[in-house]
Amino acid sequence: MSTPEAALYENSFFVEGGNFDTAGSVSSQIKALLKHMRLPNDVVRRAALVTYESEINIVSYADHGRIYLKVTSDYVMIEAIDKGQGIADIELAMQEGYSTATDKIREMGFGAGMGLCNIRNFSDFFRITSDVGKGTHLKMVIKIDKLFDGI
């Protein structure tokens, strides 16, 4: 097991709730950054996907939130922390197909109840915690070195 390494890159990005026009822009920025850092394509793609789903969740359900990005030589860590309604039953929210999305959100092709499943399936480590009425915290890690087990 390797020792935790210092961040090569660290930043955070603001996400506005309810604004579907700009939804996805933070994910695009993060993808461009990771690509620029010459991380493996597979890592960039999975990081972009989990970031996108997290961003859409903030836009769909929260007042606002921040997405934190940390890159070390071993992993990419993405955290999405929002202020909003939170999730009462996480187990239910994790079920594929379950969604509390409004018709407006569903009409745009979001709210299919797949977002959290995608995040779980495409990250190497995923943790979700939530406080009803306060907000939700997602933490996702994508390993760069497949053998790395330090998380």
Binding site: D21, A23, G24, A48, L49, Y52, M108, F110
Partner: peptide, 15 residues
Amino acid sequence: TRQTHQNIVAVASLK
């Protein structure tokens, strides 16, 4: 797709 709103560009670009 049949979706026409601007998020389809974000999806296509990310993928």
